[in-house]
Design a protein around this nucleic acid. Structure first.
Lengths: 349, 349
DNA sequence: ATGAAAGCGCTAACAC
DNA sequence: GTGTTAGCGCTTTCAT
């Protein structure tokens, strides 16, 4: 039975075919009570035969809930965000909800336009990673919302889910210390961005708390791309003659870029320079050596934020901020200096 | 002005505030003709002040078009498919349409459930990469659809967009030949899958057309994962003593896995074994050496399929099948044997 | 247990 | 140019 989309059967057709009224069909289809099992079966059969498919629009218009949720992230083609999206999507699917995904490209205009689209679609709620450098105050998104990512701090009254980058940085620094890298160089994101400020402050605090000198650390800047990471490492290599060297990058893409630069300079990782990344993207396995990194729980962030959103929608009071722990993923880019004289190279890896 | 989602202003509110009727407001908002510029401005102002936001549900219910489109792909967290999604999303955004993205995980039940959701949401159309091993005949999706990927062949009457893998394979084989790799080993996907059959046939035809012997080629099998690629290479290494060796993998993930195996076996790529991938995923840059591969136009597939879908929706007759060319991306995993004695190793890379 | 009627917010005819 | 009148397909009272 082929029907053009414009003439899909409605409950009225089902009602006619099963000889009952509209409302009875409605009852049968919503699986409610107050219905004779026989009538119900008859109706279901008729619906089946007609190829009836519930019109979600009408249902939503009447009931006020669409069963649609929104997700606004910077870039769906970015492996980290793709994982987040997947986590959110899976959780949404569990409850039968559909997810509208938008990429903002870190652009506040695009973000605003996507939020408007979500509002017009009357989604029940949304998860958004807010663009950092926006002008207007978007404290009211016009719908229930859960924030993800570091800029969630800007909206303290809204529920949010993120990774514990302070803990992650601690994990990284502890690990580096244990391997004998006490004063790594840092490769951070663009100046002024909240994520960078947080990273830098966490490092500073780590040093202070441990009675180490937090000043004069080597800090380079990138923009989270492979290219910028490579460029930064080239700069470091050109100005810092001491070997071995160690770099702690604020994301994996830059770390991988740095690794590329090391290779091109004719040096070896981890013998000459050690590199630690941050994110845990899958591509970290493929480099040679594999990238040691601090992994953020990407899929977990997506899943948990969806859980929080759904809880919020079902009227539960939700914890305002959820912070998920990062995990150390040691692979091959870190050299162990701990039982080696500074001047000698270790014999074995 | 904060309003709970349930009490958002409607055109009636706007009408009241601007002292006109419902329909006039409708006209003003739809930017149509037949409206006094002054009235229009007055209405727009009122809408603005009220924080009015058009209810897409009602609009869609009435007009029969939702402005929503669907995309069903195997896995949004897979870099290749994420690129496809991005391409489709960008193109959709250009026309103001929203995209519902679903991951089927190559599972026909999940696919069916997603298609049902799309039908119920009354999306105007969908782009789908159909799961291969399904039982039922889904020749009618219940909505305008554009197919992507190799299994599109099963539905010859439906429009489709894909990459020209035959041309891509030719590109790869030409390149390998030019480098002196005349009989590479092949690492293909699971037996029985259409993609594999096509690949194998393309290779066979390539050999036959050039008067080369297409029989007794070494063919290994994987399931498109890194792990399976690694295992396959381990098998090859264990059974085939001759070096140098060359492998042409049906996707990049398996190629990268094979590279891992080569490294673990204490061999060197490309000196001992050459590897050519297929897909063009970003992670190919990070391996050492960088993965030489045949790149599929992922984003282009997404964008073009969306274009075809939109054309179809606007009533244009569309070309039934669009095949986009692949591109050779030479990086470092292929050794040049062309001017080298088979028994000697080249001195320089 | 079932039916009738009244909308949800909008657009599309048709009047004026 | 503007207002009136019907619905789109469903859920929700409220009767019966």
């Amino acid at each position: 039975m082929r029907h053009s989309k414009r003439n899909m059967p409605t409950i009225i057709d089902v009602a006619r075919r099963s000889g009952v009224s509209k409302s009875t069909v409605g009852r049968a289809l919503s699986g409610g009570k107050n219905i004779n099992p026989e009538t119900k079966e008859k109706i279901l059969k008729a619906a089946q035969e007609l190829g009836y498919e519930r019109n979600h629009l009408a249902q939503s218009l009447r009931s006020g809930r669409t069963g649609m949720l929104g997700l606004v992230i910077p870039d769906i083609a970015n492996p980290f965000w793709a994982e987040v999206a997947r986590g959110a999507q899976d959780k949404a699917a569990e409850t039968g909800a559909s997810l509208l995904v938008f990429s903002s490209d870190w652009n506040s205009e695009r973000e605003a336009s996507h939020l408007r689209a979500l509002r017009q679609a009357r989604v029940d709620g949304a998860i958004v990673n807010p663009v950092e450098n926006r002008i207007e105050d978007l404290n009211h998104f016009g719908m229930p919302v859960v924030l993800i990512g570091s800029s969630a701090e800007r909206y303290p009254e809204l529920p949010s889910v993120g990774s514990d980058i302070i803990q992650g940085i601690g994990l990284g620094l502890d690990h580096l210390n244990s391997l004998g890298h006490h004063r790594p160089a840092f490769l951070l994101g663009p100046f002024g961005r909240l994520a960078r400020v947080k990273f830098q402050r966490a490092v500073h605090d780590y040093f202070v708390v441990r009675g180490m000198d937090p000043t004069d650390l080597l800090i380079e800047q990138g923009d989270y791309t492979v290219k910028s990471g490579k460029a930064a490492m080239e700069r470091i290599l050109a100005t810092r003659p001491e070997r071995p060297l160690c770099l702690f990058a604020a994301n994996d893409l830059m770390a991988l870029g740095a690794l590329l630069a090391v290779r091109e300079a004719g040096l070896t990782c981890p013998d000459d320079v050690s590199i630690l990344g941050f994110d845990g993207i899958p591509a970290g396995v493929f480099s040679d050596p594999g990238l040691s990194t601090i992994a953020k729980p990407a899929r977990g962030i997506g899943g948990q934020s969806m859980t929080v959103l759904l809880d919020q929608l079902s009227g539960q009071t939700v914890e305002s901020r959820l912070v998920l722990p990062c995990k150390l993923v040691p692979r091959g880019t870190l050299r162990d200096l701990s039982n080696t004289e500074p001047t000698k190279l270790k014999a074995t890896g």
